Computed example of a mutant assay.
Amino acid sequence: MPVWSCGGCGLPWPCPTRRRELRAEYADAPVSLALYLGSYLVQAAEDMPWTPAGVLHRRFPGWVRAADSSTPAVQQRSTATVPAEPSREAPDQAR
């Protein structure tokens, strides 16, 4: 694991096949998948201190959100309507 390559194909881990497997395994738990990969990010940073942090981030947890097109990258504003505030000039009808 010091260079973090896939034992099956030799590509950098997680390879495309392993990414598909992880995505299927954690289909109902994307936060758990991100945490799992984040822990590997820390280990990989220790094993490969010469690798830039951004490269490691993209390689480990960075692909999880980028590949998930069903979840918007930015939370959308609600389209629910908000009742208008009564005019300050209108008499208070509750009294």
Rank of each mutant, 00 (worst) to 15 (best):
E21R: 04
P83F: 02
R20C: 05
R20G: 10
A66Q: 06
W63S: 02
S39N: 08
R18L: 09
C9F: 03
P14K: 07
S87L: 15
A44P: 08
A29D: 14
V3M: 06
G7P: 11
V74P: 00
G54R: 13
P61R: 14
H57F: 10
W4N: 03
P12D: 12
P12I: 01
F60E: 07
C15P: 10
P2T: 10
D47G: 00
R95V: 12
Y36M: 15
D68K: 01
P49L: 10
D68H: 07
R19M: 09
S39Y: 06
G7I: 06
R20T: 07
V3N: 12
A66G: 05
C9S: 03
V42N: 05
V42S: 11
V3P: 05
C15R: 12
Q43K: 11
R65F: 15
G38N: 01
A24I: 05
S39W: 06
R19F: 04
P86A: 11
A73G: 08
E21M: 05
P49W: 06
A29C: 09
M1F: 06
P83R: 11
A80E: 10
P91V: 15
P72N: 01
T71S: 02
G7E: 13
P83L: 15
T79D: 03
A24S: 13
P83Q: 08
A84T: 04
Y26M: 04
M48Q: 14
A73I: 07
Q75G: 08
R77H: 13
P2R: 13
F60G: 02
A94Y: 08
E46D: 13
R59M: 11
L11N: 07
A84P: 01
A53F: 15
G62F: 00
T71K: 08
D47Q: 05
Q76F: 04
P86M: 09
D92V: 04
